[in-house]
Measured scan of single mutants.
Amino acid sequence: GIPATNLSRVAGLEKQLAIELKVKQGAENMIQTYSNGSTKDRKLLLTAQQMLQDSKTKIDIIRMQLRRALQ
């Protein structure tokens, strides 16, 4: 079985993952909103794209940590 310490770690990672998935969803929504907007929305679009990139990276890292914890 999986050690108890790993189980609480997994629960924490799953919570983090859920949050990051919401951030990713929000960033994707912002990108959709701003991509057909005016030029003043360009900065917001770039910010949203950066957020999305960061979020995807975090999600990958969390998933990797989850896999390790579940081994």
Rank of each mutant, 00 (worst) to 15 (best):
T5V: 10
L46F: 06
K40L: 09
V23G: 02
K58I: 04
R42F: 13
S38L: 11
K22P: 00
V23K: 13
K22M: 10
Q53G: 03
M30L: 12
T47A: 14
D60W: 14
A18D: 05
E28R: 05
Q32T: 07
L17R: 00
L44V: 03
K24V: 05
K58V: 03
V23Y: 08
Q32G: 04
L21T: 03
E14W: 15
L13N: 00
E28C: 09
V10T: 03
R42P: 13
R68K: 11
Q71G: 08
N6G: 10
R63V: 08
I2N: 11
L66Q: 01
K43I: 11
L44T: 03
R9N: 07
L44A: 07
D60Q: 13
A4W: 02
N6R: 10
T39R: 05
G12I: 15
K40R: 07
M51H: 04
D41P: 02
T33F: 13
E28V: 07
I19N: 08
L52T: 01
D60I: 14
Q50H: 05
S38A: 11
S55R: 01
G1S: 11
M51Y: 03
S38T: 12
L17K: 00
R9I: 14
Q49K: 07
Q25I: 07
L13W: 04
V10C: 12
S35M: 14
A18R: 09
A48L: 12
K15A: 10
Y34E: 02
M51L: 11
K56C: 13
L7Y: 03
Q71S: 11
L13C: 03
Q50A: 10
D54G: 04
Q25M: 08
A48H: 03
L46H: 08
R42S: 14
N29D: 13
I61W: 14
D41W: 05
Q53C: 10
L44E: 05
N36S: 14
M30R: 03
L21D: 01
Q71V: 08
L44C: 11
L44I: 05
L66V: 02
S38F: 08
L52W: 08
K40S: 10
S8E: 14
L46W: 06
S55K: 01
I2E: 08
K56M: 13
T47H: 13
I59L: 04
M64D: 12
S38D: 13
A27I: 15
S38H: 08
A48R: 00
Q16P: 00
Q50D: 03
G12A: 15
Q16V: 04
K56Y: 04
Q25L: 08
T5H: 14
V23I: 12
T47L: 14
S38W: 04
A27M: 06
L21K: 03
Q16M: 13
S35Y: 13
T33Y: 14
A11Y: 07
Q71Y: 06
A27C: 13
Q49E: 05
R68D: 11
I19K: 10
Q53P: 00
S55C: 13
Q71F: 06
T57C: 14
M51F: 04
Q25S: 07
Q71W: 04
P3W: 03
K43Q: 11
R9L: 14
L45A: 02
I59K: 00
A27E: 00
M30N: 03
M30H: 03
K22D: 04
I19L: 12
I2Q: 11
G1A: 10
N29P: 00
G1K: 13
M64C: 14
I61E: 10
I2D: 11
Q71D: 12
A4C: 15
E28D: 02
E14C: 15
K43A: 14
I2T: 10
M51P: 00
A69H: 04
T5C: 15
G37M: 05
I31C: 05
Q32R: 09
Q53S: 09
I59W: 01
M64Q: 11
T57I: 14
L21C: 13
A4K: 13
I59D: 00
R68H: 10
A11M: 07
D60K: 15
Q53W: 05
R68G: 05
K58R: 13
S8K: 09
K43P: 06
I62D: 00
P3K: 06
A69S: 04
K24T: 03
S38M: 08
R63W: 08
E20A: 08
Q53I: 09
Q32L: 11
L17S: 00
V23W: 03
R42I: 14
A4F: 01
